[in-house]
Nucleic acid binder design. Structure first.
Length: 550
RNA sequence: GGCCUGUUGGUGAAGGGGCUUAACACGCCACCCUCUCAAGGUGGUAUUCACGGGUUCGAAACCCGUACAGGCUACCA
């Protein structure tokens, strides 16, 4: 009877029972192997590369099995909650085209899915109903330990080299008579609700993780807090239990740092007699820092934040591809055999995932990205670049708008063929590699002819103007350059030059290089003939004249 | 300190007793092709799987120790 009084005192507003919630949130009616996964970030306002790894795995698992992928907002730590964070997460999911099947957005008042609310702070009553049940059963209790008292306990434990935590004899309020607890609460003393653990640390249990296989862990015997004193919200562990049970999650994908919490979750699920979901604990993404390797950090490593990829303009699918190669190393081989398949068609195998931490290889990403962009059409490259520029380079965006067809012609150089050029790694790089094609940018550039004598340069450009014909095919164009070479004592045949360099002033390479520098200021560019075709006679001559007139 | 998980090239890794003189991909290097790049082609890039023992005819693979690394050890997730 006392327990009932205590429970009602703590939770006067909780009216529903666990059974009622079970009915409200029934088992899902899905295919036999359908997987229900969730992406459950804390709304802290940024997204980490590790989040992306879990997200991609969650998404693939659900989609491949015709299951459900839902978004849950884990905002039980009100002090860390950042406004606008959910909107940001939503926008990332949208960009990467991994939209959830069930979600809840407060700003637009959109809800989809019958397991709502999908926002933890709005599920307080649900958690409390479960906690109330535990109090009634004598499996949870209010604990009045102050922060200072706990600090003393911890210091003592550290000094005596004992396990740290509130367990056994350290759990001072575990056996406090209910009457006294009621009195303390009535007096207004602050308390947290703790699980009255029934575990034995010396006993081990077997646990099967889909990624790491079977492991042996000691039972939990710590009276972990399940409800915070400040706002009555549950801790992560308890919210995990209630939500993943009621939302009928089948597969929990989360970082390996959670492995050490498994004993707690195991006990929690056992206490309620709920079936545990399957777990996939994914490797941490690491970073090499000098000689040491550490967890990648959003503070120290720009590439840890998803905004890095956005700002650089990596294609979203390229990022996903790179993530997939970390998730399952057989993904690349699969991709080779299924070049046009969606990544969601890949059968992700948790067992094949590495259990040690992985370094995220930016070189690899670059390679994947280059290949990806090289397979796009010129329209796609144009559109994506324009979209990127709108956000990050408005000046370039204006140029792109003005020169739409012209830009597409540039992007089409050596594109849309069996072995396309692969020189764009991300969209922000495109301006750096094509700026000279645009009169607005070229106007302020000054060609530097390096070791070439300027008088010789002028002669070549002047003579070339006489023979240039816009209508030439590539072969004719090159033939003319060769003829010019012969006329000016440059070797038109590179091999001949190589054998007897002293006989000539230079070779055809020198002549084309001079043309190239005059037109672009650069010594390395894509195919010169294509560039000249796009520039057109007027611009070509203008650029030559600028040099000749100097 | 305690508990857990790992350790195969510069990177992601395959391989779970003989097919391994360690796959594949990225990176790097060289050469070829070539109007310069990029691409493409060819070849090279771990004398051997953290170390030490053991089991075995045979170990990168199995066992035991050690070392190292990482994670957790919050009323944070």
């Amino acid at each position: 009877m006392d327990k009932q009084e205590l429970a009602n005192l703590i939770f006067p507003n909780v009216t529903k029972t666990i059974e009622e919630y079970e009915k409200m949130y029934p088992e899902r009616n899905l295919g036999e192997n359908a997987r229900v996964t969730r992406f459950a970030p804390s709304p802290t306002g940024f997204m980490h590369i590790g989040h992306m790894l879990t997200l991609v795995i969650d998404y693939v698992l659900a989609k491949k099995s015709n299951g459900v992928f839902y978004l849950r907002n884990e905002d039980t730590d009100t002090s860390r909650t950042v406004k606008g964070a959910v909107e940001y997460i939503r926008s990332v999911l949208k960009q990467y085209d991994m939209n959830p099947d069930e979600y809840e957005y407060r700003d637009t008042n959109e809800t989809k899915g019958i397991y709502a609310p999908y926002i933890q702070s709005e599920r307080k009553e649900i958690y409390q109903a479960f906690i109330k049940h535990l109090i009634l059963e004598g499996k949870a209790y209010p604990c009045f330990l102050t922060q200072e008292e706990m600090d003393v306990i911890r210091e003592g434990q550290a000094r005596d080299k004992r396990r740290i935590g509130i367990y056994g004899r350290y759990a001072k309020y575990r056996d406090l008579p209910t009457k006294e607890a009621i009195e303390k609460i009535k007096k207004g003393e602050a308390y947290t609700i703790r699980l009255k653990s029934s575990g034995d640390f010396t006993h081990k249990f077997k646990f099967n993780d889909l990624a790491n296989g079977e492991m042996e862990l000691p039972e939990n015997d710590i009276d972990i807090p399940i409800m915070k004193s400040k706002d009555g919200l549950p801790t992560y562990h308890f919210a995990h239990l209630v939500d993943d049970h009621l939302m009928r999650t089948t597969h929990v994908v989360r970082g390996q740092e959670w492995i050490s919490s498994i004993p707690v979750h195991y006990e929690l699920f056992k206490t309620f007699g709920f079936k545990m979901p399957k777990y996939i604990h994914i490797p941490l993404i690491l970073k090499k820092d000098g000689d040491t390797i550490r967890k990648i950090s959003k503070r120290l490593d720009p590439e840890a934040r998803m905004s890095y990829y956005e700002e650089k303009g990596y294609p979203y699918l390229a990022v996903i591809e790179a993530i997939m190669t970390i998730a399952n190393s057989n993904y690349e081989a699969w991709r080779e055999n299924h070049p046009d398949a969606l990544f969601t068609e890949f059968e992700f195998s948790p067992k094949k995932m590495s259990s040690s931490g992985a370094l995220f290889d930016l070189d690899k990403l670059d390679n994947i990205s280059k290949n990806y962009i090289s397979r796009l059409t010129k329209e796609e490259v144009y559109l994506e670049t324009a979209e990127w520029a709108k956000k990050y380079d408005s000046e370039f965006a204006t140029i792109l708008e003005k020169y739409k067809d012209y830009s597409m012609a540039i992007y089409n150089i050596e594109r849309e063929q069996k072995k396309p050029r692969k020189d764009y790694t991300y969209y922000s790089e495109i301006k750096d590699k094509t700026w000279y094609m645009y009169p607005e940018y070229f106007i302020s550039a000054t060609p530097d002819f390096l070791e070439y004598a300027i008088e010789e340069v002028k002669t070549i450009l002047t003579k070339y103007k006489d023979i240039y014909n816009e209508k030439d095919t590539q072969e004719e164009w090159f033939q003319r350059i060769k003829e010019l070479c012969d006329a000016l004592n440059y070797a038109s045949d590179r091999k001949a030059y190589k054998e007897n360099p002293t006989l000539y002033k230079g070779s055809v390479v020198d002549v084309t290089n001079i043309l190239r520098i005059a037109l672009t200021t650069l010594t390395t560019t894509p195919d010169l003939y294509s560039i000249m075709q796009i520039l057109g006679k007027e611009q070509i001559f203008a650029r030559f004249d600028k040099v000749i007139a100097k």
